[in-house]
Design a protein around this nucleic acid. Structure first.
Lengths: 298, 298
DNA sequence: CGTCCAGGAT
DNA sequence: ATCCTGGACG
């Protein structure tokens, strides 16, 4: 009836499950673009503070057919729901019909128990209009931190358990100085600080924590963005964080040699945003003090 | 003081817990009838679309005494609450006193921690008037589907996570054709379809999916009824679904050789009910299209 | 602001 | 199947 124009087929259901669970809290919809070279996904959150880009080369798919490019916006919550229904070893087929330009079909096949699950997703938002993602050079960043994603997740977990002071969106202050990276959050009745030192290369050849610093930098982020990236960071062993006081920070997770997922997160401006009050400045001030304290200890 | 007229005693607290949790959402009250041969329970939902019948032979009870028959209507939500308080290994005693014709006493005994819990339930509704349940022959149905209850539950779960379009009661279209059964639901921004093929007997001697079809059939049901039955279907490994465009569908769960729980559910009539609008017809139409599409693929 | 119910994760 | 977390309602 209709010709099949696009049919990437892949086995890693878990991969997309993880991605969708990570994204769907924060991002309502995403722009998907399938092309001969692979998949590119982009989304921006409602407050336009964070932007996520996922790139997955065709080789990442078990089987990838793509006759012509297809660009579409999809609702992420619905997709997450759909993928939750899938078994881990299902074969997934994504199909768009030739003349059917407002719907895409995801099929989950479970050969052994003879079950075929099919979802049609309506296109949403501004289809065909991918976001403009600026390309920054590594050299533009004041500090670049690499660490095991497990470590990053642990830090986020601590911060979010502690940093909820109840009266505003929890934030974290990330500072890099003297080959260490510090995460600071304020809770109801105290503060929490995690300092990660650069690992000695002799100690741990695998999973090192590396800190390249051109200049000290200290930035404030909403914890919710960190948490979302933290979920996504299960996709790889290592995360990379690029920090600059001038540019959006980049939190990146490389997916083998097959692609990456990257969050561009604008730091909060102290006093610049309506919901940053005196308290925010006090935190920043304390933070500075602690910096100085650390230096004294050395 | 009063003679104990009825004293069925059983250990399977979990059994009744499950039944009550399944029923109490949908059915306000149920008619209980204890007789020498066992228990029969019947209930009809407020919109009179679904009817449930539970039959449990005396042998299903650990210990069953019944001097004379007792017929009573009881509030299911209250009973569910009571059973929630019971431990799984409690001994339950149901007692009605001779001259006490408007109350029944449920006692939960936990021998090890010496706790006795007692509930008195007032009779409600039209006591002594069981519902008329028509007896249909299997031969009257256009299609009979048997499948593992786990599979049925999975399908219901999928449908209800996806099929909530927000603006009306979620429904499912169940179709049988060509030795497959298809469940279709529409969500906010897409649709979900599950196709179950008949399992090959060589593949899985246990827990097969069997489809006996005399004629293709496609029916619309409110998801809430399916979900209620889905909960009850934990009582057995296998469920049986009898479908006909003329009769109420029967969803049955056999309880070993000891009884069964059976839902009689009237399908929605397209266009016949006030809350079936154009959309419903569109779904049915799409559904038909998909049917035809499937056929072309064969 | 606290309570209750539903959904998801272990 | 149970427990915990998040969201909705009173």
């Amino acid at each position: 009836m209709f010709a099949t124009m696009l049919e990437p087929r892949l086995v890693q259901t878990t991969f997309f499950k993880n991605v969708l669970e990570a994204l769907s809290d924060l991002f309502i919809e995403a722009h998907f673009e399938f092309s001969r070279t692979g998949l590119e996904l982009q989304a921006i959150d409602t407050s336009r503070v964070a932007l996520v880009a996922l790139v997955l080369r065709a080789e990442a798919f078990n089987h990838y057919l793509c006759d012509r490019g297809l660009s579409m916006g999809l609702n992420l919550a619905d997709m997450a729901k759909a993928f939750r229904c899938a078994n881990n070893d299902d074969i997934i087929t994504i199909k768009a019909e030739e003349d059917w330009t407002d719907t895409v079909t995801f099929t989950f096949e479970s050969p052994e128990d003879g079950e075929i699950l099919e979802f049609d997703f309506d296109f949403v938002g501004s289809n065909g209009v991918p976001l403009e993602i600026p390309e920054y050079q590594e050299s533009e960043y004041q500090a670049i931190v690499r660490m095991p994603s497990a470590k990053f997740m642990r830090i986020c977990k601590k911060l979010s358990s502690f940093g909820d002071s109840g009266d505003r969106d929890p934030v974290v202050i990330i500072s890099v100085y003297k080959e260490r990276v510090r995460s600071f959050a304020r809770g109801k009745t105290g503060t929490s600080t995690t300092v990660c030192l650069q690992t000695q290369t002799v100690d741990k050849p695998k999973e090192p924590t590396l800190i390249e610093m051109k200049e000290e930098v200290s930035l404030i982020f909403d914890l919710k963005y960190m948490n979302s990236f933290s979920k996504a960071s299960t996709l790889s062993d290592q995360v990379t964080i690029n920090l600059s006081s001038e540019l959006p920070a980049v939190f990146e997770c490389k997916i083998a040699e097959l692609g990456y997922i990257r969050y561009y997160i604008s730091p909060r401006k102290e006093g610049g945003m309506q919901n940053l009050g005196d308290e925010m400045q006090r935190i920043a001030k304390e933070d500075k003090m602690q910096n100085e304290g650390d230096e004294m200890q050395n």
